[in-house]
């Protein structure tokens, strides 16, 4: 009990004595957590969005000739032979027309002049979900183009590809800011603790003479590092949360955020970021303590 009281008291004393110094790493930790979490938040949301988009991928093969009922099983077999497919839907001219007019509802009058044959027949191919890979999808659409009477294949993969590039780019940014976070935390924390140790050199020397145990000397410094990790990352995450809230409230309604159904980190992930920061800062303080305190 007395031990704990001492450790806490000493930590408080250190913080008070060198108040200017711990404020600096606190700010650094806060900013690096904010930066990292910001990109990470966008990244996780992008991932979820692309997973959802991948769900409704379908390849539409427009044909220049109606597929007869006898041709269907052959075509279907050919497609299934190429790759795993969830379902295949044949859409005839009249079906396509019926769909469109259902969609247009009250304005379907404009179709009257065009006649029921103006839309091409098509085959809708729904690949299995594990075919999310973009290169596989483009291979698939190239194959579909070789089917008899295929005029055009629409896959929406161009757009998906751009989205994929962006997600990849974001992954790099996340990794970079993550490494920055690791470096800045361990370095800054160990650097400031080194300053604390140096400013307390005289005291540490006398503690050594008085027989202070290693724990007595080291734990307050370790605790200081842990607290910097905890406080810094809490502040960073809180700042990000408020930023998120602000943006969400400003841009509510249809738009980017709606489209992606932008959400904040789940509690587990928030906890993991917090924990990682604490561990990093503790490791940083361990470095300086090991190097600069002679017992």
């Amino acid at each position: 009990m007395q031990f704990l009281a001492y450790i806490l008291r000493q930590t408080g004393k250190n913080l008070r004595q060198t108040w200017g110094t711990p404020a600096m790493p606190l700010l650094t930790v806060t900013l690096s957590v904010l930066l990292f979490a910001f990109f990470f938040l966008i990244y996780t949301n992008m991932l979820r969005a692309s997973a959802r988009l991948g769900d409704d991928i379908r390849l539409i093969v427009y044909l220049d000739q109606e597929v007869t009922a006898q041709m269907r099983p052959g075509l279907e077999k050919k497609i299934r032979d190429f790759g795993p497919v969830e379902k295949i839907v044949f859409v005839s001219r009249s079906e396509a027309f019926a769909r469109l007019s259902a969609q247009l509802d009250k304005e379907k009058d404009i179709l009257n002049d065009l006649g029921p044959d103006f839309l091409p027949p098509s085959i809708e191919v729904y690949p299995l979900k594990n075919l999310n890979d973009l290169t596989k999808i483009s291979q698939f659409s190239e194959f579909l183009l070789t089917l008899p009477h295929a005029a055009k294949v629409q896959s929406g993969s161009d757009w998906l590809r751009r989205f994929g590039y962006f997600t990849n780019l974001l992954r790099v940014v996340v990794l970079l800011s993550g490494s920055l976070l690791i470096i800045s935390m361990t370095f800054i924390v160990s650097y400031t603790l080194r300053l604390t140790v140096l400013s307390r050199q005289g005291e540490l020397e006398i503690l050594r003479l008085l027989g202070a145990t290693s724990a007595y000397i080291r734990l307050p410094l370790l605790l200081e590092g842990m607290m910097q990790g905890f406080l810094g990352s809490s502040l960073g995450l809180a700042a990000l949360y408020f930023l998120y809230q602000y943006i969400a409230s400003r841009f509510s309604g249809p738009g980017f955020l709606r489209l992606f159904d932008f959400t904040f980190f789940p509690p587990e992930l928030t906890g993991a970021i917090l924990l990682a920061s604490i561990v990093l800062c503790t490791v940083g303080s361990l470095f300086s303590i090991r190097r600069f305190i002679r017992i």
Binding site: L209, L210, G211, A212, T213, S214, I295
Partner: peptide, 13 residues
């Protein structure tokens, strides 16, 4: 090291 620390707590200098 721990032994030295314990000893120094019992020796006043």
């Amino acid at each position: 090291t721990a032994g030295v620390q314990r000893m120094r707590q019992k020796i006043g200098v």
